[in-house]
Design a protein around this nucleic acid. Structure first.
Length: 320
DNA sequence: AATCAGGCCAACCGCTCTGAG
DNA sequence: CCTCAGAGCGGTTGGCCTGAT
């Protein structure tokens, strides 16, 4: 643990001359004052907390210290493998909404998760994606191979439910969507709710090793998805797409056994095309932008979507 | 032993949201 | 409505720690 820094993180005087408020690291004495006050009085107005606890801190600083460090229900120590998997899963659904992710990891703070993501998971996923692009998968079907040097994609080989829910943020690639996967995907959920766009997912259709990424973008009916860079995408869209991909994955897996003939895909292609026309789906260009995107995506209830998380196999506690 | 670089993480900053007046 | 203050959030920063050289 870092030693308390009585001079503040910027190295300037400990007490801000203008406001007389301390900045920087908290001393044990300050921690004790805040802890005692919170135990006695509970959470209230944070500026009152700062004042009444005899702390020369702003309320904001007190709040942060309490939430991130002093709260008694905080879990200490390294993240478990289960927590890590859950964070990845939740991030695929929610994007950088750390507070919402933290709300689903009891005892963990948004700051902690954010730091963990930025320092550890991001790096790990980067390594995974770089190693996967160096050694393409061994599917014996040429249809299954991504084209044009796919540079991203998260694949969990340990847990089937993790398949197809994450694409590395730097990814921007054209992927070939296997017709068999198109055939297997039930597009109804998205088409019914999204009259102005389409969200899809890539699946490698090896029966026991489906792989995928999540994205929103263009589709052409040669079976190619044009994948936009994830950083250009609305985080809520990411979440919703993640959920859709989850459902699509389930559909793929559910339907996989019944798919015996690749020729089915040609009929399906027409079916999807008809479905898109019926639903006035735009095919050219990015489907949603700005308000249009917000309007379209706003119709979905994110909390409803998050119910899916409760089925996450590693979740050993009740989702709130 | 000294130096350096990279990682980690606590805490700040700036913004948005919300509710009260 | 408008304004303001407080709360909350995500992004960023800067300093300590640690391992490599």
């Amino acid at each position: 643990m870092r030693k308390p820094d009585s001079f503040g993180r910027s190295g300037c005087a400990a007490i801000n001359a203008a406001s007389k408020l301390r900045k920087g690291l908290w001393s044990p004495e300050e921690d004790e004052k805040l802890m005692n006050y919170m135990v006695r009085n509970g959470q209230g107005c944070w500026s009152d907390v700062a004042r009444n606890a005899g702390l020369q801190r702003c309320g904001k600083s007190c709040r942060l210290r309490w939430i991130n460090y002093l709260r008694p229900d905080l879990k200490r120590g390294a993240f478990s493998a289960q927590e890590e998997e859950l964070i990845i899963h939740l991030h695929s659904l929610l994007g950088n909404r750390w507070s919402q992710i933290a709300a689903r990891l009891p005892g963990r703070t948004d700051n902690e998760i954010k730091n963990f993501w930025n320092s550890t998971i991001k790096k790990r996923l980067k390594n995974i994606s770089s190693s996967s692009s160096r050694s393409p998968n061994t599917s014996d079907s040429s249809m299954d191979q991504p084209r044009d040097g796919v540079n991203g994609g998260f694949i969990s080989n340990q847990e089937p439910s993790m398949m197809g829910v994450y694409m590395h943020p730097s990814s921007s690639s054209t992927w070939q969507l296997p017709n068999m996967a198109l055939n297997a995907m039930n597009l109804d959920p998205i088409l019914d709710q999204q009259p102005t766009g389409i969200v899809g997912s890539y699946f490698d259709v090896q029966p026991c090793n489906a792989q995928g990424g999540m994205f929103g973008g263009n589709i052409d009916f040669e079976g190619h998805f044009m994948v936009p860079p994830l950083e250009n995408m609305n985080t809520e869209l990411c979440g919703k797409m993640g959920n859709f991909v989850e459902r699509s994955n389930a559909n793929v897996m559910n339907n996989m056994n019944s798919i015996t003939n690749y020729n089915q895909c040609n009929n399906n292609k027409d079916n999807i095309n008809n479905k898109l026309v019926e639903n006035n789906v735009k095919i050219e260009g990015l489907c949603w932008e700005g308000d249009e995107l917000r309007t379209a995506m706003g119709e979905w209830d994110l909390e409803e979507l998050m119910k899916d998380v409760s089925s996450f196999p590693f979740l050993d506690f009740q989702v709130q």
